[in-house]
Design a protein around this nucleic acid. Structure first.
Length: 590
RNA sequence: ACGUCCAUAGCUCAGCUGGAUAGAGCAACAGCCUUCUAAGCUGUGGGUCGCAGGUUCGAAUCCUGCUGGACGUGCCA
């Protein structure tokens, strides 16, 4: 489809230039790049549209006349390959009607051949991309905000990979700092030696409970804050008892978070820990100091002056020599580049940190790292609740595990309500995949940079524009396929005849299938998974309609069976490949 | 105060580098299960694309101003 578009773009360019020359309006006045291509609103009008408005001024005539002149010229001069399509005039547009049979044949053949690789492209041609996402703290479990981050990061990494990039998914665990000490302190005070094991609680929730307990305690006793600071000091000095507790509690949290990751399909190639990288950050700042790009204040703190860049002055090292969030991020970036030199590093971090990343990128550039120009902050918007912003302090927070559990229960209920229990061998895992499909789709159908509102009732809905709708479409085709290959004497023996798919409905589906590689390319270029989600829903709708109106297996004509089956199978393949990119599990049965 | 971003149907969101009558889901209402999974399909109603200018043959899309909202401008993360 893309090649056909390019072909016609070239042809139209030649023809316009020819007209211009013949009428002494100049030579080579338009280039192929400047020619706009579109898709007509109705397939009956053609498949590729060239609006002629832009040439009206140059050629001093109406767009309609130009379109007509183009068409006549194309026919009389035999400037085109008949098989590539036929031009038609529609108002101010020159539309190209493609050879449906030929395109259908080619597309179905290509999908069959490329199978799981169909749609993959190479625009990013082995570009090395590191992508950072998730980045949890080790003092509490994940919430809805992390889930959006995870979904965007994971999906984007897959989309870029499908566009030919070499991808390295990295996580950064925020495992040090005062907030970690707070939960440790509360644990020491109130836990009485209990563990996630003795309490039967998931590790991250167990630790999170002590963080809450700390805050309750600190609200009435100022001593708490003091003790926490003391503990942080001890931690930085490497006090063995504190270190041991720290390791133990971090272990619990990370183990718990890992379980959440596997429920939603999140994976990393490498995990970094702030406790490892903050020292390197310190060193980098001192290097910058000796280079003279930073300066030391009289209270011993180290600063960078970015007022010339339209930013502010910023502290890089505290007066007591300890490091900050920014310091640590400097070290982490350098570490990453050394570990695996990248062409681009993408940070998937909420838009509230826009300023932070502006500063970080500038600082790295001042330190002389040329790769600092290739850092990219993918700023995604907030997830809000109908009643407003999520606030953990007021208990207005959607816990990730609770949400997933609710979705699983609901999925199980749905399966039972539809009487599908007996068909499905592993109910728990199927419900889990429906839950993660619903969740990831809900979070990814919105453009990343926009804030979104999370409606609990809507997110757990399985009808309409949802992940389960797409899973259902895939499951029905899978079911058809099982019947088809399981009853050869009844259904097989026909041959694929693309001519049987020349109807409007079928053609729209074929065109979408043909567009799929371009859709992935778009999504990669825009760094926007919702492009894939929107496309798949459209495809699902078109197929469902076709499927509803046209019997596939219940036909006397074996050729028709084989042909429609081939179409269904191609839809299934594209669905499968696309769903993978937005972290919605494909299900053969549901 | 300044900076960045957002504003499309009752609600949640699409709308590609400006282009043919502005779309979907949910909710509401009305239909469709002796046939391949009704988690489905069909139909109806619902819009001054925040407001006002400008650029253009042509603007939801680009520019300016205004209004409303989010976030940020910590020796927090």
């Amino acid at each position: 489809m893309k090649d056909l578009k390019e072909y016609w773009r070239g042809v139209i360019c030649r023809v316009i230039n020819l007209i211009a020359e013949n009428e002494n309006r100049g030579t080579g006045i338009v280039s192929p790049d400047s020619i706009i291509t579109e898709t007509p609103p109705d397939p009956e009008m053609g498949d590729i549209a060239f609006p002629m408005f832009q040439f009206s001024k140059i050629l001093k005539k109406s767009p309609k006349e130009i379109a007509e002149q183009c068409r006549i010229l194309l026919e009389s001069e035999h400037l085109t390959d008949k098989k590539a399509g036929t031009p038609e005039v529609s108002g101010a547009y020159l539309n190209i009607r493609l050879d449906r049979i030929r395109v259908t044949e080619e597309v179905l053949a290509r999908i069959g051949k490329q199978a799981d690789d169909y749609g993959r492209g190479n625009v990013l041609n082995n570009k090395r991309i590191t992508i950072e996402f998730s980045c949890p703290n080790t003092n509490k479990p994940l919430h809805l905000g992390h889930l959006r981050n995870d979904a965007i990061g994971m999906s984007l990494s897959l989309i870029l990979e499908a566009s030919g990039a070499l991808i390295r998914r990295v996580n950064l665990i925020n495992d040090r700092g005062i907030h970690i000490c707070k939960s440790m302190l509360a644990y020491k005070k109130f836990a009485g030696g209990s563990t996630p094991g003795t309490e039967g609680v998931k590790g991250d929730h167990f630790v999170g409970k002590y963080y809450v307990l700390y805050n309750e305690w600190a609200d009435k006793d100022p001593e708490a804050e003091k003790e926490a600071r003391e503990m942080l000091k001890k931690w930085e000095q490497g006090d063995s008892e504190i270190m041991e507790l720290w390791k133990k509690m971090n272990g619990w949290t990370i183990e718990g978070i890992q379980k959440t990751y596997s429920a939603t399909g999140v994976e990393f190639d490498q995990v970094y820990y702030e406790s490892d990288t903050y020292k390197l950050g310190k060193e980098e700042v001192l290097k910058g100091l000796s280079k003279g790009v930073f300066y030391r204040d009289k209270d011993n703190s180290v600063w960078v002056d970015l007022t010339g860049e339209g930013l502010d002055k910023k502290v890089l090292l505290r007066s007591d020599g300890t490091s900050l969030y920014l310091t640590q991020d400097i070290g982490t970036a350098v570490q990453r580049y050394n570990d695996w030199p990248f062409d681009t590093l993408i940070y998937v971090v909420a838009s509230e940190q826009n300023y932070h990343f502006k500063v970080l990128f500038k600082v790295l550039s001042l330190l002389g790292y040329t790769w600092a120009d290739n850092l990219y902050h993918l700023a995604y918007g907030m997830v809000n609740l109908p009643e407003g912003k999520m606030k953990s302090r007021e208990g207005r927070i959607v816990d990730a595990d609770d949400l997933i559990e609710d979705l699983c229960k609901l999925a199980l209920k749905e399966i039972a309500a539809k009487g599908r229990d007996s068909e499905i061998s592993d109910l728990e895992s199927t419900a889990g995949m429906i839950a993660s499909g619903a969740l990831n789709y809900y979070l990814l159908q919105v453009s990343p940079y926009k804030d979104m509102v999370f409606y609990p009732e809507e997110s757990i809905s399985f009808t309409g524009n949802t992940g389960p709708y797409l899973q259902y479409t895939g499951a029905r085709i899978s079911s058809l396929l099982r019947k088809y290959s399981g009853n050869k004497e009844k259904y097989s023996g026909g041959t694929l005849k693309p001519g049987l798919l020349a109807g409007k409905e079928e053609w729209e589906i074929v065109r979408m299938l043909a567009d799929f590689p371009g859709v992935i390319e778009n999504a990669a270029e825009q760094k926007n998974p919702s492009v894939i989600a929107v496309f798949l829903f459209e495809l699902g709708k078109h197929f469902s309609r076709f499927y509803h109106d046209n019997p596939i297996l219940h036909n006397k004509n074996r050729d028709l069976i084989a042909t429609r089956m081939a179409l269904a199978e191609s839809v299934m393949q594209v669905l499968k490949n696309g769903l993978k990119l937005i972290c919605v599990p494909f299900l053969e049965k549901m």
